[in-house]
């Protein structure tokens, strides 16, 4: 067992527990985005940052990937942590403002504006879908490709993957496209998003009674 203190409260957890799990056990709220129960911690979105250590050696770490250490002193809502989180939310808003999950985060943390160049990305590269596909669906149909600016998620060679069973798990866990069908960017206002989701939409054409898991979907309604 490992003893550590979170926001001054001592807590004893089992070896291998992450700081995030320990904080959640005590009831301290830590916002997360790329983290998902059942998937391996990834540390991509940096939203779950907490401050560890003291004085000059204090530093920010992602609590979802940081294992609990004996004697560790964690602050989950110091001014430094809050400032960092707000900037991260602003950056997420700058790249993907249409995501309901990010909008909710912004309102919960009282982020009312973002000061960066506005983009309308479909993806924030949180890797939830990639881990879902690999770890829960055992398919490994999608993955990251490229690097830096050109990093993106997709199937190899952008062709329909033989490993994909069109389970829809990737879409189900996606924080960015959960609101795809009600895009709020003017020129994409009427979906456009669904056009990318060929597997479920294609299947629906064959089976009239089949319900898309994104139903009701504006694009499908219009087609009808």
């Amino acid at each position: 067992m490992i003893e550590l203190t979170i926001n001054g409260l001592p807590v004893t957890v089992e070896k291998g527990t992450t700081v995030l799990e320990a904080a959640q056990f005590l009831g301290f709220p830590i916002p997360t985005l790329c983290h998902m129960e059942g998937l391996t911690p990834y540390g991509a979105c940096r939203l779950c940052v907490v401050e560890i250590g003291e004085g000059e050696r204090a530093k920010l770490v992602t609590s979802c990937t940081y294992p609990a250490e004996p004697g560790l002193k964690v602050r989950t809502a110091s001014s430094r942590v809050v400032r960092a989180r707000k900037i991260i939310i602003e950056l997420l808003l700058a790249s993907c403002p249409q995501s309901k999950e990010i909008q909710d985060l912004a309102s919960a943390h009282e982020v009312k504006q973002q000061r960066f160049r506005q983009e309308y990305e479909d993806c924030i590269l949180c890797g939830r879908c990639v881990r879902m596909c690999e770890e829960q669906m055992m398919a490994k149909a999608i993955g990251f490709s490229g690097r830096g600016e050109t990093r993106r998620i997709g199937t190899p060679f952008d062709k329909k993957s033989e490993a994909c069973r069109t389970c829809g798990g990737c879409v189900y866990v996606c924080p960015a496209c959960s609101l795809r069908c009600t895009y709020n960017e003017p020129e994409k206002a009427i979906c456009g998003g669904c056009a990318n989701l060929s597997p479920p939409c294609l299947d629906k054409e064959q089976f009239d009674d089949m319900m898309c898991f994104m139903s009701p979907c504006v694009a499908c309604e219009i087609k009808r």
């Binding site: 490709s145 490229g146 190899p156 490993a163």
Partner: peptide
């Protein structure tokens, strides 16, 4: 290995060309 992993490595490095 899965094709996704290999494709990821092949596209990650500038040295490799598809």
């Amino acid at each position: 290995r899965s094709l996704v992993d290999i494709y990821g490595v092949a596209t990650f490095y500038r040295f490799f060309s598809l």
